[in-house]
Amino acid sequence: MDARTKFNVTVTGPAEGQPMLFAHGFGCDQNMWRHVAPAFADDFRVILFDLVGAGGSDLSAYDPVRHATLQGYADDVLEIIRELDLRDVVFVGHSVSAMIGALAEVAEPERFDKLVMVGPSPRYIDEAAYVGGFAEEDILDMLDSLESNYLGWSAAMAPAIMSNPDRPELGEELTESFCRMDPTVARQFARVTFLTDTRPELARVTTPTLVLQCSNDLIAPVAVGTYVRDTIPGSTMTMLEATGHCPQLSAPHETVAAMAGFVRGGPGE
């Protein structure tokens, strides 16, 4: 199966534009970018996709072994990049996808021009002097919370996961499927997301990176954003007034403005 189908890839903007690849975070799908991505579609080739198991991705592409680590998800990103033959990619990753982008960049840096990390965290669990914001039991508690919430609709969501071009209501359904994920995949993805430690990889990132940090983000506190900025060589951080973990939804204009200068600036080295 090709990557376009597997990951429900959608492409807008001029074909000759510099590619700008948006990756959504845990719990969401590409609809997450609906207020931000269009602002770049005049001059960039804007590419959106769903992580495997989320939104309109093909569930059969989920492989418990490959996707037991974030590297598996990073390999998915590289698969898209290779299939679409993208070069000089501006990669915009939200939440865990900021780390997925970092891993992809470390594997094939020559493909990337810039990284934008929205609310990144390389490690959610506190450890010695490092403050991630959570204790390990908080993460287990969250897995419990996931189970309770996926209980009611695990069967109901199946049709939205299978793509079916004969059904005109599909577009609507995909929006409805927002924040929905196959329960088994969601649980494993939650484990991988919240128990992985990507800190050692950050220092190996060589592509110019911008960290967008929200005020009062429970998931990725300011101290964590600062850690990411201090660890990725030559990266910069912009503080947003937006609160919460999803500025692209709560403050899309501010988010677009904070990215614009960086992504339209000259090419990275």
């Binding site: 939440s95 908080d138 508690d141 939804l249």
Partner: peptide, 26 residues
């Protein structure tokens, strides 16, 4: 609870902003 907060921030809050409503969140 801390776990509930993660769920709130990653699922509930984005979904509420997207659909203007959420239902039956545990």
């Amino acid at each position: 609870t801390p776990g509930g907060r993660i769920y709130h921030e990653t699922h509930y809050a984005p979904s509420l902003k997207m659909h203007d409503s959420v239902r039956e969140i545990a």
